[in-house]
Nucleic acid binder design. Structure first.
Lengths: 341, 341
DNA sequence: GAATTTTTGATTTACGTACGTCAGAATGTG
DNA sequence: CACATTCTGACGTACGTAAATCAAAAATTC
């Protein structure tokens, strides 16, 4: 059987109370004694039984998810996943609170971050906006001892502990290769539709996409990026206009959300032209479009996995425990019409 | 706080001992009383605290993984993942044993299954071979009350509880679409290399591949499948010969393991012809080949995920608990050179 | 209605850890 | 050396559940 606190006490030649003081960094232990205990712990390879410890402490993990109130399927899905996690709260000892903030508004995010009671929060997950004030709000929180995980969109250069999302540069490059290879040797224009260049994930996708396009598919020329604010109506108008005005467009990369509008525009034009389309995020709309052949490939991040991963990471961090790194890697899912889940 | 056994006792107006008898299906409770207790459980929404229960029971999950002793990177990786799980045994309360059996030998698998002491096994995971005698051995085990999960390759028509692996028909179809689209409108022959038509996963991949090829890419004609027994040497010889004898080959789908041999053959011919290649399983060899442009896409199943999932499923089944279905879905990973982990 | 069997209750110990109290020992200070 | 201070040990209770014992109550049988 695995060693217990009693075994430590026996090996170190001290009492249980002293072992407990050392394990839980309570005062009242001389340096020498503390060292003896720590040595015994190493020697017998003691590992705290977290389940028993949580039981004894009656531990709860009060977590906060700060999510943008965007009206698109991906964000709806993310919300739903967090709510499902809330449904599992009792068996996972979590107490998850959702704070909704307006999308793309740094000040709102900062306000939400600053509103958190430091003592009463075991961890925070947020969909980050890449702005200096957000950066420093996150750093403040981390400095106050609260574990922070970025979700979907990262915030580099801060002290956030973990990023639960995909590698968006790789996503952009992958989209470029798919589009480039699917188009064979054709020559023409490629349209890109983003949500906003304010969020890091969209910027990075575009960056990766543009880079690979330039490197490997010189016969395809990139048009200036359109920004649809992840809003279906706006996207629809932008795409419709672009297709009307430019007959050379043969490929589209939609790297944001709000694909409802894109799909509508494509269907209206559908019969007239053959377009190769790569989009992001598997939703009911993109799924249907993929099946119908309106979209050729969908790149996806599994929101459920991201939420579960964020929770695992925050809990582990709150307990000072390790993780299974591979389990927390969020992969870029590529869906063709044949491998839909 | 969530309700406890004491609350059940209070609500049902019985003693703790009776509640315990009902919860753990011990004898000595009248039907009416049992019903009253069960009603109280539903009423207050009691859920057993598994951590506390396991602590009290000192529960251990003795699990068995039956793995083929194949000499290829994928199986090595699978072994490694199980060994890693063994390393986590103490914190997960598992006691995992690996039984190695010769690959593609049904009798060996049956012998391994029959050797298991029913009482002392909380669950079995096996890489199945699709043969009648294996089928009935699995059914025997399930009938004896042992949870069984198939790993990587499934065994339909049996009472196995779960399959931890990818949808191989979808995998074959996906490979076909990638190959077909990457080849643009070219005309020519496509070669398929399998390990063995004895294992269901390979058969299904080929089936999916052939079907989609016929449906959507009539200009590509499929050559008869080659069987390399997942052995690098054999694969190398088969591919080399095929390429020498047939100048019309423009695409290859390698749906099994042992890709070392395929890659060697491709590199030898590399300069002379342009081939589009889709292979299975991300290993150090296929990864390097993908980077070098020798292979165009790799379809992968995450062995680590499969092993962790199998363990979760077996434990949940042993405890009669539910799962998060989405978490146990093994996806088909598609890797291009741009989204390698 | 007495004897027997079955059902139920009350109580205890245990799992591994957390955490508090109190007394006593060791150490340090003057 | 007396005293204050710091360490340490012994012990108890708690978390939620499992499991066992023994006595008491209820139901069943004859």
């Amino acid at each position: 059987m695995r060693p217990t606190v009693h075994d430590i006490a026996a090996v170190a030649g001290v009492s249980l109370a002293t072992v407990d003081r050392v394990l839980n960094q309570r005062p009242g232990v001389r340096g020498v004694t503390r060292q003896r205990v720590e040595e015994a712990i190493r020697e017998i390879g003691y590992v705290r039984d977290v389940a028993a410890a949580n039981l004894a402490k009656g531990r709860l993990y009060p977590l906060v998810f700060i999510l943008p109130a965007s009206d698109n399927s991906f964000m709806h899905g993310l919300h739903a996943e967090v709510r499902q996690a809330i449904g599992r709260a009792s068996s996972e000892r979590t107490d998850i609170r959702i704070i909704e903030v307006p999308a793309f508004v740094p000040a709102a995010l900062v306000a939400a971050l600053d509103s958190l009671a430091v003592g009463a929060t075991a961890g925070v997950a947020l969909v980050a906006i890449d702005a200096p004030e957000v950066r420093s709000a996150v750093d403040r929180l981390v400095a106050a001892g609260v574990p922070v995980v970025t979700l979907v969109s990262d915030l580099t250069g801060t002290s956030r502990h973990h990023y639960a999302g995909v590698d968006n540069i790789a996503a952009g490059r992958t989209a470029a290769r798919l589009l480039g290879r699917f188009l064979g040797g054709l020559e023409g224009d490629v349209l890109t539709l983003a949500g906003s260049m304010l969020v890091r994930d969209h910027r990075e996708r575009l960056e990766g996409f543009s880079a690979l396009m330039a490197e490997e598919f010189p016969r395809l020329s990139l048009l200036p990026v359109l920004e649809g604010r992840d809003d279906p109506e706006t996207a629809n108008r932008l795409i419709s206009d672009a297709l009307s005005n430019n007959g050379r467009i043969i490929g589209i990369y939609s790297l944001g959300a709000g694909n409802r509008g894109l799909i509508k525009a494509l269907k209206e034009r559908g019969a007239q032209r053959e377009l190769t389309v790569v989009a992001h995020e598997l939703t009911e709309h993109t799924r249907a479009a993929l099946k119908d052949g309106v979209i050729d490939a969908v790149l996806n991040q599994d929101a459920g996995h991201e939420v579960r991963s964020a929770i695992r990471v925050l809990k582990a961090h709150a307990d000072g425990l390790g993780l299974i790194a591979a389990q927390e890697r969020i992969r870029l899912d590529i869906f063709l019409k044949d491998n839909l889940p």
